[in-house]
Amino acid sequence: MLFIPPYVPEAFLTMYLPAIYAGLIVGFIATMAIAMKRQEIHILILTDLVGLAMIFVVSAVGTDLAEALILPGLVVELAETLAISEILITREMRIIEQDPRRNLSKSSSIFPQPFSLNMEIMTTAPNFIALVLIGYGIFLTGFTGGAVAGGGIVLYALSKKARGLPVLMLDGIAGVSGISWCLWIIGFLLFFVAPQYWLLSLFLAACGLLLKVASKVGLIGLLMREDIDKE
């Protein structure tokens, strides 16, 4: 039984060129679209495509290493989208705040335009889906598990129509995620200092990351709930 070949198999070698050319073309389309667009929110959406092109180029290598490298890339994309969209919102709010007369939409605080996601799935299935996602995430154990379980929490939070206590809740979440991050670092260091306790450190790392990602992704759910279901 040959578990791994000494060299990259032929199949990956032939798949490399189409994959990387596809990545270059997708990247070209995305960048050109960005260069032609003026509205900033559209540029923000289009940068998502640039991230997809990056996944193509990285995954084309076709080794376990490539797979391990895709994950940071994806996470960086996610993180930057989150931070930048928040900054965009802040900027617009500050602009309106500084000169309310110029932009009459300050009235939006007087007459909030109610917006609700009237999707069937939002009212019937979400709790079940959330449960499945969280369960599957725990089953996976590790970074992906954390993300999947976090997705479950997002769905759960989205489906609940409740308002209030966001700040208290967030403080708690931030605390949990900080602790789990420390757990994670300790796990990593333990690996190098004392390899014989690898199982312990693995569990520290994996569970720390699970907690962390789940709680962080849960934050997005809270944000969404605050904004979307305010009626």
Binding site: G27, M54, A66, I87
Partner: peptide, 25 residues
């Protein structure tokens, strides 16, 4: 300017990670 720089930083993930991956390949 922070927002615009952020857009560039996001786009940079393609040349940075992609460039590293091409060198790896």
């Amino acid at each position: 300017s922070a927002f615009n720089y952020g857009l560039i930083a996001m786009m940079c993930s393609l040349p940075l990670f992609g460039g590293a991956a091409i060198i790896l390949a």
